[in-house]
Design a binder for these strands. Structure first.
Lengths: 342, 342
DNA sequence: AACGCTTCTTGCAACGTTGAAAGACGGTGT
DNA sequence: ACACCGTCTTTCAACGTTGCAAGAAGCGTT
């Protein structure tokens, strides 16, 4: 591989001048530039990015760390993040934590791979607020997805309160009169769930006496079986609701399973709304209405936030709210609005 | 960020000794090691990977380049490749070409981003054999997926001939008596399609007179609409087949659409087999029987092949064959064997 | 002829690490 | 007393690039 020095020798100039030509610096005589350009071409010079990085301190590499890249939600995000980063002149390196708490803790302390990156976008899964509070590392990091609380790191997320409010409003407008939630969390660190709960309660409060609350279901995890159990409880309940909001699509899919088994008509006897718009949501039976975040917007916002943090480490910590929308499929009434799908 | 020199000053030794401690070199006195370890901890030393890379010439970064990371097939591969690379001590950087020929050409010439990586695993889409023949770059590259012909680069793929043979055998064993293919290619560079055609013809030849060939359908691209058109031709044909093999799941999905419209019973009146096992294959109506490559095996094979190429650039070019299997779902007869799904 | 100004070019050092080789130290054998 | 060896430690230079500051050359002004 040819170096600046090789090119310089061939062109009969100093290495510094070659560097000036390569980087389009002013004050290079036309004749010199031509000679250097010819030499560059002759030797097929490619700048050594590593040396450049060592000298300048910029690597041009952003980390993107998620629990599991094969999940469609993360894959779509990764795709958008690669695009956004490329547009800003950065390359993206990916890593997976598989939701392992230790790995996530190490990550926010060190930065991935001992700072081989300029910064990272991180979608935590197991991480809790106290882990972030104890953070000492200055490594530029932007969190996306689940809120982990704390104001030590930049965050990108949707307005969970507003989203839950909208979903609840929609169910009320569709004529449902007893609405329950599946997926409330008692733990203090589960901020996302709390915000969704707030938005939902606000909509229910505004509706006054005409709409009842169902027996909201608390769960420990957001897996299909949890949704299944919770729905089993609700259906047997004396005050059986006619609509539920699940705080995750996985919960909703479990709930739909149970309803299907019991031959409860969806959405006629029970409407179901989820959160996240995972791929399975469009393939469930019936297809699931759900809150979808704009993942392209998440990606560009996160990339921009990270680059801002890298170039300006002292800036105050920010929270970025990206847009969401309620995607109506067949698990809620569709006569009022046509199906919206992308 | 503390450097070796800082640690050395604090511990009262030379930078080289600190380096020896960090890298577990022999011949460091216990007392010295202890002092250095204390200093390392006190300053929270993290080695500068960039400097290390410049010195050693190893970056520890593999590129993984696909047309579109959001497609589930590539996402699953990416996930497995990250795991395999991590196990070997490498990080993975991803990039997307969107099937853009110019971008793919540049990639095989230069390596991604001017050789910021040690090597790359590349799933080409638009690239043709002649592009590879003209390659001058020595950048370590392993190709996966579609075969591009030529023996200038390491390849990882499944035995397409055997796979097509098996799928055809299965249809014959299921009792089908006129079998057609959708997805033949005339272009000389379409080696994958030619191999699949060979495997299919071999199975048909072996079956002798008891099984007829249908009017095999040539297509220009592998998109849903191409499969739709091709099936339209076949159904109207005087010698209408009772089974088709589609050389891509996308073609099969288009074909199923047409059959559904015409109310042709699948698999009773027409069995359909695809290639690739994309996610949509399990959600199609009816779920599609298809040839699935073992993507975890592709990933580990490709990573190992690439690392081998990096460490041993002069080794002869190799082709790696990974295993595949025929996944039987409802688009072919299932009474003989239960459905196989992962 | 001396000066300053602009345009162009260069040398040096540094980024943080490691390879190569030499130096320091104590012990052992002659 | 000296060479020799093994263990431990250091010095020096280099990887390829760019920031800094200074040098050289040409030219117009005084």
């Amino acid at each position: 591989m040819a170096t600046l020095k090789d090119v310089a020798r061939l062109a009969g100039v100093s290495a510094r001048t070659v560097s000036n030509v390569v980087n389009d610096q002013p004050y290079v005589a036309e004749a010199t530039r031509a000679r250097v350009v010819a030499a560059l071409a002759a030797l097929d010079y490619q700048p050594n990015q590593v040396a450049k990085s060592l000298r300048t301190g910029r690597i041009g590499l952003l980390g993107f760390v998620v629990p599991d890249l094969s999940q469609s939600h993360f894959a779509r995000l990764a795709s958008d993040i690669v695009e956004a980063a490329t547009a800003r002149g950065f390359t993206v390196a990916v890593d997976q934590t598989h939701g392992d708490l230790e790995r996530e803790r190490r990550l926010i302390q060190l930065g991935p791979r001992g700072a081989m990156f300029d910064g990272a976008i991180f979608h935590p899964e197991a991480l809790r607020a106290e882990d972030i509070e104890h953070r000492e590392s200055q490594f530029p990091l932007v969190l996306i997805g689940e809120r982990v609380a704390g104001d030590r790191l930049d965050h990108v997320y949707i307005d969970d309160r507003a989203a839950a409010y909208e979903a609840t409003r929609r169910l009320i407008d569709d004529g449902h009169r007893r609405i329950a939630a599946i997926g409330l969390r008692r733990a203090a660190y589960a901020r996302t769930a709390h915000l969704r709960e707030e938005g939902m309660r606000q909509a229910l409060d505004e509706a006054g006496d005409q709409v009842q609350q169902g027996r909201h279901q608390y769960v420990e995890r957001y897996e299909v079986s949890d949704g299944y159990e919770a729905m089993a409880n609700l259906v047997e309940s004396a005050e059986r609701p006619d609509a539920v909001i699940c705080f995750a699509d996985m919960l909703a899919i479990g709930a739909l399973h149970r309803l299907h088994e019991l031959r409860v008509a969806v959405p006629e006897d029970m409407a179901v709304v989820g959160f996240d718009d995972i791929t399975e949501a469009s393939f469930s039976y019936p297809p699931l209405s759900t809150i979808a975040a704009d993942h392209a917007e998440i990606a560009t916002t996160a990339v921009n936030a990270l680059i801002e943090r890298i170039t300006n480490p002292g800036a105050p910590i920010r929270e970025y709210v990206v847009s969401h929308r309620l995607v109506i499929r067949q698990s809620t009434r569709t006569d009022s609005t046509p199906e919206v799908r992308n």
